[in-house]
Simulated assay, not measured.
Amino acid sequence: MTDAHEHLRIIQIVNDREVAISGGAEAGISGGDTLLIQGRPVDIRDPETNEVLGQVVQTKAVVKAYDVKERFALARTFRSRRVNVGGGGGINSISRMFDPPKWETRTETLRRSPQAGDPLLPDESVVEVGDRVEKFTGSADDVPSSSVWR
């Protein structure tokens, strides 16, 4: 991460897929950039000595910048996957076991629970105002995320 990106943070949660990020074009963010929303660092300790061996940072969500202003940027979730919400032998319901599969494409959200209602309340979001944001240059498919699929 470069010095220009040190200050990138979530400044507002817009909805269940979109956030506003501090530091837009002046911080080097461009439309289409992949951004990692990260949690607080967690100490990794030796269980015998309790010595801190280092820290890890969890990626809470992965978003792409789509509307970049000079001092802030809007970004949204973009990863999707196909899920079977119909039959086809799943273990969810024996009565639907012999129904044909019904595939839907679902986009990753920032919700803790896919059943949460609108609007997105702060305790329902996996990200928080103030969370660190880091520009990512690798493949977005290689980044783990704890976001909820719905």
Rank of each mutant, 00 (worst) to 15 (best):
A116H: 05
V56L: 11
I91V: 14
A140Q: 11
I10W: 03
E128Q: 11
M97L: 06
V42K: 13
R150C: 09
E26S: 15
G117R: 01
P144A: 06
D16L: 00
I29F: 04
T109P: 00
R45H: 07
A25G: 14
G130A: 05
G32E: 09
D142E: 15
G89N: 02
E48I: 07
G89I: 00
A73W: 07
G54T: 04
K69C: 04
N92F: 13
I21H: 01
L110I: 03
L35Y: 07
W149T: 04
K135S: 07
R150E: 15
D67G: 04
S147P: 08
R79T: 00
V14W: 01
L35W: 03
E26M: 08
A25I: 03
A75S: 04
H7G: 12
E134C: 13
F78I: 06
S80R: 15
G130E: 04
R79E: 07
S125E: 05
T109E: 02
S95R: 12
R150S: 15
A140I: 03
G86R: 05
S95D: 14
K64Q: 13
Y66A: 01
V83R: 03
R71L: 04
T107A: 00
A140P: 14
R45N: 09
D33G: 06
T34G: 12
V42P: 03
K102N: 13
Q55G: 09
T105S: 09
E48A: 11
A140N: 05
D123A: 11
G31A: 15
V57T: 15
